[in-house]
Amino acid sequence: MKIEFSSHFLDKKEEILKYINDFNKQGTVLYGGTRNLIKTFDVSDGLVINVKAFKIPKFFNQFVYAYIRKSKARRSFENANYLINHGFCTPKPIAFIEEKNWFGLQKSYYISEQLEMDLMFRGLTTNTDYPGFDKILKAFAQFSYRLHEKGIEFIDNTSGNTLIKKGEDGRYEFYLVDLNRMNFHQNMSFELRMTNMAKLTSNEKVLKIICAEYAKLIHKEEHLVYETLKQKADNFQYSFHKRRELKNKILFWRKKKKL
Results as ranks from 00 to 15, higher is better:
Q62W: 06
G46D: 10
D22G: 11
A66D: 01
F59A: 04
A80G: 13
Y19S: 04
K18E: 15
G32I: 01
V43I: 15
N36Y: 05
G87P: 03
A80L: 02
Y31N: 12
G33F: 12
F88A: 03
T34V: 14
V43M: 10
V48P: 05
N81Q: 14
A80V: 00
N79E: 06
L47A: 00
V64M: 12
R75K: 12
V43C: 10
Y65S: 07
S71K: 00
K58V: 06
F23K: 07
N50I: 03
E14T: 13
R35D: 05
L17T: 03
K70S: 14
T40D: 03
K55D: 02
E14R: 09
A53M: 14
N24F: 14
F63M: 09
S76C: 08
I56H: 09
V51C: 12
I38M: 05
G32V: 04
T40R: 06
G32Q: 15
G46N: 11
F23G: 03
E78W: 02
G33L: 08
E78S: 08
D42P: 00
R74Y: 11
N81Y: 09
F54T: 00
L37V: 08
V64G: 06
I16R: 09
A53Q: 15
F77N: 08
Y65D: 11
G33R: 07
D45W: 02
I20G: 07
F23D: 01
S76G: 08
T90E: 05
L37C: 08
S71Y: 00
K58W: 00
I20M: 03
L47R: 00
D45E: 14
Y31W: 11
V29W: 00
V43Q: 04
Y82E: 05
